[in-house]
């Protein structure tokens, strides 16, 4: 275990808030605006952390548990993600399931907290969140399973370390499918267009934003920071598939991966600029489509392995 094993996760903790900034800047460029500073998320976090929190009298400890609990889940999950050749600090066989469940646990806490407020808006958001996540999870798990099958490893580190350039030449179509499915999962889990619009504040169309309306101060900061970490986490999976860097030197790998993260942020911005948000009724179609892609990828991998 070298310093490189830790570096990516630590970099993630530091640089994650930069990603929303890059995405927003991209969108601003597309719209012909100057846009907010790249470091805006850092400023927001600093501001929020200095403030005090206000709690509604109808809420209980469930409501207060969610932000730090969710953040804890994401930090742990971040240490499960490998960087190129370097295994993650917490890697063990089967950790891909832990990853999925850490995300699930975080969602569970957020949803419970939203219900705890007793507000009908937040309840609606919670209901949508649960409905959609029930559809994204198969896509994520099946996609990871396809990769696990192809590489013969049951740990995230083994899987992503195992995706090499020869793999791309051999099972390219299947990898593209899985990557496409993971991209949709990435957009859906991070409440991005075309599934959800992070900027909207129309209660009837929001999913994620509506659930956190009642938070303020440090709690909101935790949630914002958590959202950036989630962006980093799922983005890192994508980057790891697309950049088979096996055998290169440590610094180069890490640098490439971080640069890859920024590219993912830019791509997200582009997608958000050129696409419209889907109507709520069509979102399940997209997510089931992603699951179908994963299945197809899985089946193709099976076929190649024969």
């Amino acid at each position: 275990m070298s310093i490189w094993n830790f570096s990516y996760a630590v970099l993630g903790l530091l640089l994650a808030p930069l990603l929303p900034g890059i995405t927003n800047r991209t969108k601003a460029v597309f719209a012909g605006r100057h846009g907010q500073p790249l470091l805006q998320t850092y400023y927001d976090l600093a501001k929020l952390l200095r403030k005090g929190a206000v709690y509604s009298r109808t809420t209980s400890w469930v409501f207060r548990l969610a932000p730090p609990g969710g953040l804890a889940c994401l930090v742990v999950a971040l240490f499960l993600v490998p960087a190129g050749d370097f295994a993650a600090p917490l890697a063990f066989p089967g950790d891909l399931i832990l990853l999925a469940y850490l995300l699930g646990l975080m969602r569970f806490m957020t949803v419970c907290a939203a219900l705890d407020t007793g507000s009908s808006f937040e309840g609606m958001g919670a209901s949508r969140e649960v409905q959609f996540s029930a559809l994204t999870e198969p896509a994520l798990i099946l996609g990871l399973a396809a990769l696990a099958y192809a590489t013969g490893s049951f740990s995230l580190s083994g899987i992503f370390g195992g995706v090499t350039r020869p793999d791309w030449l051999q099972v390219g179509p299947a990898l593209v499918l899985v990557a496409a499915a993971l991209l949709i999962v990435f957009l859906a889990e991070n409440s991005r267009i075309p599934v959800d619009d992070p900027n909207t504040h129309l209660e009837l169309t929001m999913i994620h934003e509506v659930m956190i309306l009642d938070y303020s101060g440090p709690d909101l900061a935790f949630i914002l920071y958590g959202a950036s970490l989630k962006l980093w986490l799922l983005g890192a999976l994508l980057v790891n598939i697309f950049l088979p860097l096996t055998g290169r030197s440590g610094p180069l790998q890490i640098a490439c991966l971080v640069a890859g993260m920024f590219v993912v942020a830019v791509v997200t911005g582009v997608i958000e600029s050129v696409m419209a948000r889907l109507s709520l009724l069509k979102v399940p179609q997209l997510l089931v489509g992603a699951a179908a892609l994963s299945v197809l990828g899985f089946v193709l991998m099976l076929r190649y392995a024969l």
């Binding site: 390219g172 179509p173 069509k282 089931v288 179908a292 892609l293 197809l296 193709l300």
Partner: peptide, 21 residues
């Protein structure tokens, strides 16, 4: 590989067709 890609395109378009309105 090209044959495979075409076949995957065939399947994807079929899925797409199943899902479009």
């Amino acid at each position: 590989a090209w044959t495979d890609i075409m076949l995957v395109v065939l399947i994807l378009t079929t899925f797409w067709l199943l899902g479009s309105s």
